[in-house]
């Protein structure tokens, strides 16, 4: 048994036991998705270099709108180099949502995506059926698994504000946001989303004071079979979605932010207790 497989099995055991040891957990979801990365940095005999992770994860609902989530990234196709051969932790967080008269708040702490760790607060306020305001504030550091797990100081402040306009007749949405992002750049983004039955497709244009202008597309595909297989309080299912961003400038640094949930996406957002618009699940 090679090292990668051992680590993969170990990670699975850790993830599942993390869920099972939540004695007060009401529901525990065990899910598996895939993380697709592709790049074209070198002129070679391939169209793209690929890095594909299988990312099993667990989410435990602890009641009172508390949730813990953990995820592992297991490389199954790696054309990026040895650095990416390691099994890595994905998003591993504990979070709490609070419903307010003016929307909902969500506090999270733990390991986020994009190699960030720290604390995060989000607010969603659907003002009416067609307009909502969102904001996010984070205090994070960088963590990496090279030879050993290392952490930078947790001293980076990020935050943004987003206005969302839903056009019900066309099942479409316009989002305009601005803020400070994880590479300490400032900028803004305009997005247009078409929401279909199972898929949302978005087009965006953005400006970052460090990365410049860019544009591209985002697609979020909701994976069926979410009822999964039930065994007691456990549900085994595929990941809720597959999402992809295409950036024409292929710049991974402009307006980059992190996710606080292993299944976070632009269609269903970050909140479990509140969605905008309400028809999108």
């Amino acid at each position: 048994m090679n090292g990668t497989l051992k680590k993969a099995i170990l990670s699975l055991i850790v993830i599942i036991s993390a869920g099972s040891h939540c004695v007060s957990a009401q529901n525990v979801d065990v899910f598996v998705g895939a993380d697709l990365n592709y790049r074209r940095l070198f002129f070679n005999d391939q169209l793209y270099d690929l890095l594909i992770y299988v990312n099993p994860g667990v989410k435990a609902d602890l009641g009172g709108n508390w949730q813990i989530a953990a995820q592992a990234l297991i490389p199954v196709v790696n054309q990026y180099g040895d650095f990416y051969n390691r099994v890595r932790p994905g998003v591993c967080t504990v979070s709490k949502e609070i419903l307010l008269q003016s929307g909902a708040l969500k506090f999270s702490a733990g390991l986020f995506s994009a190699g960030r760790y720290g604390i995060d607060a989000r607010w969603l306020y659907p003002v009416n059926e067609w307009f909502a305001v969102e904001s996010q504030l984070g205090f994070t550091g960088y963590h990496t698994l090279e030879q050993k797990w290392r952490f930078s100081r947790m001293d980076r402040l990020t935050g943004n504000v987003r206005a969302r306009f839903f056009i019900k007749k066309a099942s479409s949405e316009i989002r305009i946001s601005a803020g400070r992002y994880i590479y300490e750049d400032y900028g803004g983004q305009a997005e247009f989303y078409s929401h279909f039955n199972n898929t949302s497709v978005g087009l965006f244009a953005q400006y970052s004071n460090k990365a410049g202008c860019s544009a591209g597309a985002k697609i979020v595909f909701m994976i069926p079979f979410q009822k999964g297989l039930k065994a007691g309080k456990f549900t085994f299912r595929p990941a809720s979605n597959f999402r992809l961003t295409y950036d024409v400038m292929a710049d991974n640094h402009g307006l980059k932010n992190y996710s606080i949930d292993p299944e976070e996406n632009e269609r269903t957002g970050s909140f479990r207790t509140l969605t905008f618009p309400g028809s999108i699940k």
């Binding site: 074209r40 002129f43 070679n44 005999d45 391939q46 169209l47 597309a217 295409y246």
Partner: peptide
């Protein structure tokens, strides 16, 4: 739509 035009010359893929 997005389209990629791919060609291979001398063992190197261009797009």
């Amino acid at each position: 739509s997005f389209t990629g035009f791919v060609r291979k010359i001398g063992g190197i893929v261009y797009q």
